[in-house]
Every structure is written in structure tokens, then in C-alpha cells.
């Protein structure tokens, strides 16, 4: 099937999501407030810590805000485009409702990933962009067009990493049926994305910087704005994004072959 066909499917889903949002306006306002409050909580943590110290692992207050803002953008874009879709996969595999996606006209992974859209997450990503913009201004940074383009591409890689990790997590119910609540481990892992890489030492560095993509995902794009384009970390992050994506797709396909449906 052509790319245009998938684009048409995605646009139809997006249109449906917008209509739904307009129907349930109070829900939209409430969930936007929920996400916004959590973002404020993270910003307040930075504010409070830097009232008592001038540096955390060599990062100043506004550098830290740049990191937290970048982490927010990636997470909000991921939740806006994919979270509600992937969150349901485990439950659908357990109940047999996953059959519904197999009968749809397209690749099953695409169909389960794009059915819904959460405009509240997408709207809140603007808050993340505002935090990044404010931090860059306060730091007196003047990134060039190439650095900005690189930052945007790395944010895209970051969303791909979040997506791939979540697909890996929700593929587990194909093997372990009784794994309710496993989706929450996504938030557990990406808490580390709000910390500077230099804060990690020893085993923590090995685990969260090198083995899992929790730290790289936000540190590399933030560093492009701080220090300009550096080929090695950028290539490292792009490699991690595509590597994790490949692994998650293979895992999902393998899981799909095991799926035997649970409905009558």
C-alpha cells in the first residue's frame, strides 16, 4: 500500500479525533490542565533546587530548564500522537479486541498506533517549546539555522525512541498475558530524561545512558542548542532511534505471530 493511502487513513483518524475533542470540550480542558500541572511540577522542582545551588552536574538553571523543556516537548508529542493508542494494546490483546485491528486495511502496527490523537498533549508541547525558547534567550545562545534544524530532527528521533520503547513494552502481553499495568514502566523509565547525563555515574551511567535510551533522548538535542552540532552524539542518537525502532518492530511482528485471539 502506498504512502498516500496511509496518509489518508491517518488524516481520517486525525479528523475524527478533532471532532471528538470538540464534542467533549470539558474533557479536553481537564486533560490539558492535568498535563500542564505535571509540567509545572517539573519546572518548580528545577526552580526550588536552583534556589539553593547554582549548578547541578555542571548545568546552570537555564541549561537545566532547556533540558527539561526538551524532555517535555518529546514526551508531549509522543503522548499526543501515540500514547492513547499504544496504552490500549495490552488490554486489547488480553480481551481479544485486537482482532479489530487485524481486520483493518493496513499494517497492524500502523493501525494500532494512529487510531487516536490527543490534542491536549499536542497543545501542551507548545509549553515545552516556550520553555526551550525562554531558556535559550536567558542563556544568550544564538543557534544557527543548521543547529535548529538538527534540534528539530533530534526531537523527531526522540519521539521515535519513546514510540519504540513503548511498542517494546506493549508487545510483552503477547508472551505474558497477565501483565496489567506494565505500560506505567514507560513513565518510570523516562523520568531519567529530565536529568543531565553528567549526573550519572558507575552502574547508573551504564544502565540509563548506554543500555537504555532514557538519558540520551533529551540530552543530545539540548546539547545541540548549548554547544552547537557535534557529529558523534548526533549520530549516536540517530543510531539508537533507528536501532530501537527496528527491534520494536521485529518484537511486535514476532508477538503478532503468537496472537491467537481471545474472542469467540
Amino acid at each position: 500500500m502506498s504512502l498516500a493511502h496511509y496518509l489518508r487513513i491517518w488524516l481520517a483518524s486525525a479528523r475524527y479525533a478533532m471532532v471528538r475533542t470538540l464534542m467533549f470540550r470539558f474533557d479536553f480542558v481537564l486533560w490539558s490542565a492535568v498535563e500542564f500541572t505535571w509540567m509545572v511540577v517539573n519546572l518548580l522542582l528545577v526552580q526550588v533546587i536552583y534556589q539553593h545551588t547554582s549548578s547541578v552536574a555542571g548545568w546552570s538553571k537555564y541549561e537545566m530548564l532547556l533540558l527539561v523543556g526538551t524532555s517535555m516537548i518529546i514526551q508531549r508529542l509522543f503522548t499526543g500522537f501515540f500514547w492513547s493508542n499504544l496504552f490500549e494494546v495490552g488490554r486489547n490483546v488480553r480481551t481479544g479486541h485486537f482482532d479489530f485491528y487485524l481486520a483493518q486495511p493496513g499494517n497492524p502496527l500502523f493501525m494500532i498506533s494512529t487510531r487516536k490523537l490527543d490534542p491536549d498533549g499536542l497543545v501542551n508541547s507548545l509549553v515545552g517549546f516556550a520553555v526551550v525558547f525562554y531558556s535559550v534567550r536567558e542563556l544568550g545562545l544564538h543557534p544557527g539555522a543548521f543547529d535548529i534544524a538538527c534540534y528539530v530532527l533530534l526531537v523527531g528521533c526522540g519521539v521515535l525512541i519513546h514510540y519504540s520503547v513503548m511498542v517494546t513494552i506493549v508487545a510483552l502481553p503477547f508472551w505474558i498475558i497477565n501483565s496489567q499495568g506494565i505500560e506505567g514502566s514507560y513513565f518510570t523509565l523516562f523520568q531519567f530524561s529530565r536529568l543531565p547525563r553528567e549526573a550519572f555515574r558507575g552502574l547508573a551511567s551504564l544502565l540509563f545512558v548506554y543500555l537504555l535510551p532514557a538519558v540520551v533522548v533529551s540530552n543530545v538535542p539540548a546539547n545541540v542548542l548549548r554547544h552547537g552540532f557535534q557529529p558523534v552524539p548526533v549520530a549516536w542518537m540517530a543510531g539508537i532511534a533507528f536501532g530501537w525502532f527496528a527491534v520494536s518492530v521485529l518484537l511486535f511482528q514476532a508477538g503478532l505471530r503468537r496472537y491467537a485471539s481471545a474472542s469467540s
Binding site: T53, V56, P196, E198, A199
Partner: peptide, 11 residues
């Protein structure tokens, strides 16, 4: 531990 450990390195 990681965040506060790093914050206390300066104080």
C-alpha cells in the same frame, strides 16, 4: 539519588 546527589556536589 542521582538528582540530589548531583545538586549536593556544589553545596
Amino acid at each position: 539519588f542521582i538528582l540530589w546527589g548531583a545538586a549536593y556536589r556544589g553545596a
